[in-house]
């Protein structure tokens, strides 16, 4: 870093790529997971979240704009297989951000999420499906 007078984006990128390659070559001797794969999983989780956000927003907007509001709201209980504060918090955050479901309460032993869904007959399957997808993606991120 101190050997050069001018720093450019090109030299930074090439150095970074070489570092990545060396780290990849030394992967057998390092116990932790290659961090680029974790980064990819985080990116995948984010894309999944954006897709869920759009599809369920459309459902909620359709419900709101009907001339006569015809919804059957209710509170569902969802069993989760995730463990630990980080994983459960992440799942609750993502489920709350997707419209049509708000996490109201988490049972004291962190096993059951109580979710308020806007329209039970239509959304309960969707909420379960997105929960399973989120769980799979979260496990990839947090577990080695």
């Amino acid at each position: 870093m101190f050997f050069q007078d001018n720093w450019s984006v090109l030299s930074f990128t090439s150095g970074y790529l070489i570092g990545l390659l060396i780290l990849f070559g030394l992967q057998r001797f390092i116990s932790s997971k290659y961090y680029l794969f974790t980064l990819l999983d985080v990116l995948k989780l984010f894309l999944l979240f954006i897709a869920e956000l759009f599809t369920s927003s459309m459902v909620v907007i359709g419900k709101i704009l009907q001339p006569k509001i015809n919804i059957k709201p209710g509170i569902l209980s969802l069993d989760t297989s995730l463990q630990g504060d980080v994983e459960v918090t992440l799942l609750a955050l993502l489920l709350t951000l997707t419209p049509g479901s708000v996490v109201i309460e988490i049972s004291p032993d962190n096993k059951v999420l109580y979710v308020h869904a806007m329209d039970i007959p239509e959304l309960s399957d969707g909420v379960r499906r997105s929960q399973i997808r989120f769980e799979r993606a979260i496990k990839k991120v947090t577990r080695p």
């Binding site: 956000l53 909620v60 907007i61 509001i69 709201p73 419209p99």
Partner: peptide, 16 residues
């Protein structure tokens, strides 16, 4: 109709 459903409309569509 109630506060729980309003939370859906208010917090999420406004996020979008």
């Amino acid at each position: 109709p109630d506060i729980y459903n309003r939370a859906h409309a208010l917090s999420k569509s406004s996020t979008l």
